[in-house]
Design a protein around this nucleic acid. Structure first.
Lengths: 116, 116
DNA sequence: TTGTGGTTTCAAAAAGATTTGAAATAACTT
DNA sequence: AAGTTATTTCAAATCTTTTTGAAACCACAA
């Protein structure tokens, strides 16, 4: 792989870093990449961003989220499941209600993405 | 909106924070949400995560990225355009080559998502 | 100016995500 | 047990993103 033609400046810099092989070895492993992608996917919808920020401020049952946003229950439930599968939120039962709240990761992520 | 039935604990906590209206007013505005979503979408594909991390370690021309990953040029080009549109990478021309490298935002994001 | 190599653009096909409303669950109340 | 309320699940329809290969574009060299 080192015999391809590229600009000298890059060939130099690359050599100083151990070549393309060294770069490839330093890339995150597949499991790490899948985790990042799963969280990023969960964040890539405005509905879910709003829900995540709202839960960050205040744990809520689904009916409150539904009242707040005007979305159908099934829609809200779908988006909550996406957030849950990527470990950004979790839920506890309170009588008849399911109360959703952010995980530690969810809180960390909310604080980070505010600065994007 | 305050006459819906929710668990007492939540009604209390919520009242202490100014009610649902106060929460809604503290949500990020639409522009901020669109920015977050755009960056998150760019991060929500394993190809682009690998490319972003590689460029973080070393600016590269497209041909090097293609050699490194084994993807077709058109595919790489598509993914680079997604990263570029969300302002995570940019490029400069070097003779015949286009050299891609992360923006400030791109570098910041790489450092953050390593911890996800 | 013609050719060559690096890169992007395009359109069609394939794959994946979201929305919808209806039906199913699950926990409580009577 | 039967009814009520909160929530999830399901399947179909719709919408968006990704992949593919071919063609176009652009900078440089002969």
């Amino acid at each position: 792989m080192n015999e391809i033609v590229i600009p000298d400046s890059i060939r130099c810099e690359l050599a100083g870093k151990g070549g393309i092989t060294a770069i490839m070895e330093l890339l995150p492993d597949n499991q790490t990449i899948e985790n990042i992608v799963s969280v990023a996917r969960a964040l890539s919808d405005p509905v879910r961003i709003r829900v995540l920020f709202a839960l960050f401020m205040q744990p809520m049952c689904v009916c409150l989220l539904v009242a707040m946003t005007g979305y159908a229950y099934s829609k809200m439930s779908y988006h909550l499941s996406v957030l849950k599968e990527s470990d950004l939120v979790c839920s506890r039962q309170k009588g008849n209600y399911l109360i959703y709240y952010p995980t530690d990761l969810g809180r960390k992520v909310v604080e980070e993405i505010e600065g994007w």
